[in-house]
Simulated assay, not measured.
Amino acid sequence: MDKPLKNPPTYLITSVDHALRIAAMLQLEGELTVSEVAERLGVARSTAHRLLAMLVYRDFAVQDERRLYRAGPVLELAAHSPSVASRLRAAALPHLHRLVDVLDESANLAVRTGDTVRFIASVECTQSLRVGSREGMVFPAHRTTAGLLLLAELTDEELAAVYPAERYADRPEDRPDLARLRTRLARVRRNGFVLNQGRSERGVVALGVPIRAPDGDALAGLSVSMPSGRYDRRRLPALVDILSRAAGAVGADLARSA
């Protein structure tokens, strides 16, 4: 049985967490102001400014003449093409907020790169017991809701190319059993959604559907996450319907913005 991944540390260092989230924002989205960073993190502008100053000092960020911050030398290798992730995020955010308003559970947007997925947007609900923001976090694709959704789009040959045995020679335990994974992905294709009960994180249930381009290609995974104690399987059809309509709306908005 797969073990859960990335349970939050017992002692969360908030300032470090904030700095890492800012680095992920700059890497994925390009330019940001102090005010935008402060709003996204829910902190004062002075706090956001201090965090950005430290990132500049360590070359994770640079500030230009317009007083905008962007990815620095340490991150610039991955900052050459933030446009796709930025457009996806911009199109999805209003719908993520609506999902949170309707369901009162946290909502996420994630994309796949090779054998991993990265969360590029996350909106927390306001309940005291909730799944926190996953923005900027990276997980193995075969262990996540969005990853399974996007891997299900691949042919058997493409899937094998994602998980070549030689890449995992020094860590064979990280390579999924491809026969079992293909069976799981076939079920995802039949259902059109993924229900993830504790595979990524212990005590968390996530439900997701793909966001598709006009040509039908899956671009990202849209999901809601909740503490397992609040999941009611009788609501599954209704939740899938709400998510599917939101994913369709994101796809339509993205097409209009192209």
Rank of each mutant, 00 (worst) to 15 (best):
L222R: 04
E135V: 11
V204I: 14
A246I: 02
L207K: 04
P172M: 08
A238C: 10
A218G: 09
S225N: 03
A249N: 11
A206W: 00
R230K: 14
L148C: 14
L236K: 15
A247C: 09
E201G: 08
V131L: 03
T155S: 15
T145G: 08
A206G: 15
L159P: 08
R134N: 03
P237T: 12
T183K: 14
D177H: 12
T144F: 02
V131E: 00
G216V: 07
E153N: 04
L185T: 01
R190F: 06
V194T: 10
S200Q: 06
G208V: 01
T145Y: 02
L178Q: 07
L149H: 02
A213N: 10
D232V: 11
M226V: 03
R235S: 15
S244F: 03
R184K: 15
D232W: 10
A213M: 14
L219T: 02
I242T: 13
E173A: 14
P227C: 05
R234M: 12
F193G: 01
D170G: 09
R234G: 06
Q197F: 04
R187F: 06
G198T: 00
S223D: 05
P210N: 09
R182T: 08
V240A: 07
P214I: 08
L239F: 03
F193E: 00
D170I: 10
I242W: 02
S223E: 03
D215K: 13
L222A: 05
L154W: 03
E166N: 13
D174E: 15
R245P: 07
L239N: 00
A220Y: 00
P172Y: 07
L178A: 13
G192K: 12
L149G: 03
R134S: 02
R180I: 09
L222T: 02
H142T: 04
A213V: 09
G248E: 02
L150H: 02
V240W: 02
G229V: 14
A160P: 08
T145Q: 03
P172N: 13
R234E: 05
A213Y: 11
E153V: 04
R233F: 13
V138I: 14
L243V: 07
